Simulated scan of single mutants.
Amino acid sequence: MVVPIVLGRGERLWDGLEGIEERFTIEATPSPPGVVHMVMNRRL
């Protein structure tokens, strides 16, 4: 699960990311306790 994050005055970081896996490679690395680090690299 990716938790929505609100930045600054309410900019939702994870909205509108449908189809992102077509434009980016995504690597998720779990870390205790329940945190997942996600690295996104733009596809060429």
Results as ranks from 00 to 15, higher is better:
residue 20 I to Q: 00
residue 27 E to N: 13
residue 30 P to A: 06
residue 35 V to H: 09
residue 20 I to S: 00
residue 19 G to I: 03
residue 22 E to G: 07
residue 21 E to C: 05
residue 24 F to C: 01
residue 37 H to M: 14
residue 5 I to P: 00
residue 2 V to A: 01
residue 2 V to H: 01
residue 22 E to C: 01
residue 6 V to H: 03
residue 30 P to G: 04
residue 35 V to C: 01
residue 32 P to Y: 05
residue 31 S to P: 09
residue 35 V to A: 07
residue 10 G to A: 07
residue 33 P to L: 07
residue 17 L to I: 05
residue 37 H to T: 15
residue 5 I to W: 02
residue 40 M to Y: 10
residue 30 P to D: 10
residue 7 L to Q: 09
residue 30 P to T: 08
residue 44 L to K: 12
residue 39 V to R: 15
residue 41 N to L: 09
residue 13 L to Q: 00
residue 3 V to W: 07
residue 38 M to K: 10
residue 35 V to R: 14
residue 40 M to V: 08
residue 12 R to A: 10
residue 19 G to T: 00
residue 43 R to N: 09
residue 33 P to C: 07
residue 30 P to V: 03
residue 36 V to N: 13
residue 35 V to E: 03
residue 28 A to C: 14
residue 26 I to Y: 00
residue 7 L to T: 07
residue 39 V to S: 10
residue 16 G to E: 05
residue 23 R to D: 12
residue 33 P to H: 10
residue 44 L to F: 01
residue 17 L to Q: 01
residue 10 G to V: 02
residue 22 E to H: 09
residue 1 M to L: 12
residue 42 R to K: 15
residue 4 P to Y: 04
residue 16 G to T: 06
residue 9 R to H: 08
residue 21 E to Y: 08
residue 4 P to I: 00
residue 15 D to I: 05
residue 32 P to A: 10
residue 29 T to R: 13
residue 34 G to P: 08
residue 41 N to K: 15
residue 21 E to S: 15
residue 5 I to H: 09
residue 34 G to I: 04
residue 1 M to R: 13
residue 43 R to D: 05
residue 23 R to G: 09
residue 34 G to V: 02
residue 13 L to A: 03
residue 44 L to R: 14
residue 37 H to W: 14
residue 22 E to P: 03
residue 41 N to R: 15
residue 33 P to R: 14
residue 32 P to I: 08
residue 19 G to F: 02
residue 18 E to R: 13
residue 35 V to Y: 07
residue 35 V to W: 08
residue 30 P to L: 05
residue 29 T to H: 06
residue 29 T to I: 04
residue 8 G to D: 10
residue 39 V to H: 12
residue 8 G to W: 03
residue 43 R to G: 05
residue 10 G to H: 03
residue 33 P to K: 12
residue 3 V to Q: 10
residue 1 M to E: 10
residue 41 N to E: 14
residue 1 M to G: 10
residue 43 R to A: 00
residue 37 H to E: 15
residue 4 P to S: 06
residue 2 V to P: 02
residue 40 M to F: 12
residue 44 L to S: 13
residue 27 E to S: 11
residue 6 V to K: 07
residue 6 V to R: 07
residue 3 V to Y: 01
residue 21 E to R: 12
residue 13 L to C: 00
residue 36 V to P: 10
residue 1 M to P: 11
residue 40 M to E: 07
residue 24 F to G: 02
residue 36 V to Q: 12
residue 20 I to K: 02
